[in-house]
Amino acid sequence: MQDERSASADGGRMAFERTVPVDLQIAGRAVLITGAAGGIGGAVAAELAAEGARVALVDRVAPAEGAARLRAAGAEAIALAADATSASAVAAAVAGVVSAFGGLDIVVGCAGISGPVGTGLVETEPAQWEQVFAVNVTGSFLLLRAALPVLERSGAPAVVFVASDSALVVAPGMAAYCASKAALLQLVRAASVEHPRVRINAVCPSIVDTPMSRGDLGIDGVDGFAGFDFPVQTAAEVAAEIAFLVSPRARAVDAAALVSDFGYSARSNFPA
C-alpha cells in the first residue's frame, strides 16, 4: 500500500512529505478467499499475506501450490477445496478455516464465471443462465450464509465480493453475467443491512488482465491486452483495492460498490 504523507504549507502550496508506511491493521487476521487458485483471488491472497494476514486459499481444487508459495515467503497459509455452489462444501471450508486459525475475520469472494460471452439473450440457454447465477449469486449467498455467524464473533469483521462494472453498464452478449453481478450488488446491500456488525462491500472493476478475461476475449500471446484502446487493470491492482476495503482503515465504508473503471461509466456516448 502507499505511504502516508504529511502536509505542510509552503508558499501557498501544499508540500507532502513521506512519513510512515500505512498500516492496514490486518496482521494476524484470519482470511478466507474463494476463487484463490489464480487471477484476482490469487492476487488477493498474496496481497493480504504480505500484510501479515493468515490466509486460507479456497477453490474447487485446493490451491496447494499457491499456499506453498506464500508459506515459503514467510506467510501463514493453507489450501482448501470447495465447490462454491455446494452449501455443505462451503460450510466445511469455513469450518476448516476456523479450525486452522481459531476464528474468521475476513472473507473475500472471488469465485465467479463469465458464462456465455457474445451470445444474445434469446440465444442463451436456460442451463447457461442458471450456471452463471449458481456460481456468481447463489455461491455468494452460500458463502455469506456459512461465514456470517462466525464473522459476527470477530472484532473487526469484513467481507468483500468481486462484482464488476458490468453490474452497472452493459455490453451486448453478456446478459447472464451482467444480471448476475447486479444481483450480487443487491445481495451485498441486503446482507449489510441484516448484519450491521459486519462490513460487506463489493469491488466493480472493468476489464482485469486474468486468464478468464483473456479466454473470454480470445486473447493469447505474451502481449496480452497491449495495443488495445482501453485501459486494463492487473489483478494486483484490484487486490490492493480489496485490501483497503477489508481493512479497519475503511471502517466507515459499508454496503458500498467501489467502481474501478478508469471513469468509463461516467462518460456519455451521446453524439453532442
Rank of each mutant, 00 (worst) to 15 (best):
A272T: 08
E123D: 15
D216V: 09
L151K: 12
A87R: 15
V162W: 01
A250S: 02
V203N: 12
S86T: 12
A50Y: 04
E241V: 06
A75S: 12
L80H: 08
A81M: 03
V61F: 02
F101A: 14
F161C: 14
V170Q: 09
G227P: 08
E51G: 03
Y177L: 11
G74E: 03
P63E: 07
A240M: 03
P172I: 08
T19Q: 08
A45I: 07
A257K: 04
Q25T: 12
E152N: 05
P116G: 10
E65C: 00
P205N: 11
A43L: 06
D83S: 10
A68W: 00
A56N: 08
V150H: 09
G218C: 08
F161G: 14
T19N: 09
A156E: 15
A183K: 03
M174H: 01
V117T: 14
D59C: 01
A167N: 11
D261G: 00
L185S: 12
E130L: 14
L121A: 15
V55A: 04
P196T: 00
A49D: 02
A179R: 13
D209Q: 10
A30M: 08
D254T: 14
G215K: 04
V55L: 03
L245F: 01
R18L: 11
D165N: 11
A255Q: 03
P149S: 11
A30Q: 10
R249D: 00
A146M: 03
V169K: 04
A49T: 09
A84G: 05
L57R: 09
V61Y: 08
F141L: 08
Q128I: 10
E123G: 07
G38T: 07
A167H: 02
T124A: 08
G103W: 04
C204R: 09
D165H: 12
A266K: 10
R13I: 09
C178M: 14
